[in-house]
Design a protein around this nucleic acid. Sequence first.
RNA 1: GGCGGGUUGCCCGAGUGGUCAAAGGGAGCAGACUGUAAAUCUGUCGCGAGAGCUACGGAGGUUCGAACCCUCCACCCGCCA
Length: 428
Amino acid sequence: MRNNDGVTHVIDDLQWRDLIALSTDLDALRAELARGPMTLYCGFDPTAPSLHFGHLTQILTVRRLQLAGNRPLGLVGGATGLIGDPRETSERQLHPRETVAAWVERIRAQVEPLLDFTGEYAARMVNNLDWTAELSALDFLRDIGKHFRVNKMIAKDAVSARLNSDAGISYTEFSYQILQGLDYLELFRRYGCRLQTGGSDQWGNLTAGTDLIHRMEGESVHLLATPLVVDANGQKIGKSTGGGNVWLDPEMTSPYAFYQYLINIEDASVGMFLRRFTFLDREEIMALEKETAERPSARAAQRRLAEEVTRLVHGETETRQAIDASQALFGRGDLSSLNAGTLRAALSEAGLGQVPALGTVAELFRTSGLSSSLGDARRTIAEGGAYINNQRVADGDAVVERSELLHGRWLVLRRGKRTVAGLELAAE
RNA sequence: GGCGGGUUGCCCGAGUGGUCAAAGGGAGCAGACUGUAAAUCUGUCGCGAGAGCUACGGAGGUUCGAACCCUCCACCCGCCA
């Protein structure tokens, strides 16, 4: 499993994949990794019921390090999630303790399948609530707080941005970096953890830990920060295009929707996605990039990307179903030529709703969820973006006839080019 | 504790008594081109078929009429203590 001594050092691999945006002394880390297994950690805060696509960068980086023969600690922020790290814009709304506790469990369940908990380099999950819940305010201030200088704390990007905004910042969020620093110290003491990874936007919180360990233990430990997902022009991108609305939880984003998100990655970014989110080797990725340059419309790279990443997150069966559904709904063939079983399977992947009776086109678009209201449905229809069974519809008030049902039961509704939903007429 | 400034739609932000469902930008959605891409251009962007309804931090008030004026409350920012 260890390949440090062989063809590629894991740091070289991470660099090739453009996964290192910031780091502490990289040569020192490289040397330490070469000497033997290191224990590393990466934390995930429960600020939502699920992690989103962007978090995969972190989880998979940890996995790469594990595959290279190191021991990961997956930290869920049962404590830090109660506080919330400072966002650039405004103060966070605190969530109830029970909510955070429930999210901790869901997030733990999302991280676990992506790491290996067996063997010599077995991963371990930890929760920072375990060492902070009993910590008294006085101990916190005397033992930990004394090592933090306020002038350094307010210089950190996340804090200074807020100090300079008219939103301000509460003492709660200001203190967040101390808690994260304490996490690293604790994991250093308990498990000999000497490397923390995280997103580059977390740099200030990451360095809180190395500074604290340096002061209290006199040791220099390491950090690696991954870059944020940006578009081909290097611009920060919107939540949906950046994967911010693509959740890892299959209840929140179906495997089909997850697969579709990846199929639609822009050409200019697909290489970056392959490097960052798959375990394909250099040769294979470079071949796919060449393919994209030569025959972009074939989308070979996107197809492979979507298949690989969906399999990692949702498993083989779900991936197969997502691929089959995509082929059925976006394939060349006529929808009416699909057999009933294929059609039903495809629609249940895309999202299948039941209707007791047929109604007008606009009503059906609303009940399918493709349109948020009747007005929204009418607007889409007027704009020429509404299709039933791949036929554009022009009149929102037209009543859909039973004869239009595929196999006497189903309608395929589509909004725009790529959003599909199915409706099934309930048997009476 | 005192004084001053602020809280607008998903986000930023203009608006200080009717012509405001609220300028402008971003995000989103749709169309054209194409490849279920990107870029570009165009349209659209609270709910309602419509009359109308609901909305400019919250509650109340003045007025024929309030996002805009008054009172109280909450929260935020700045300066002073």
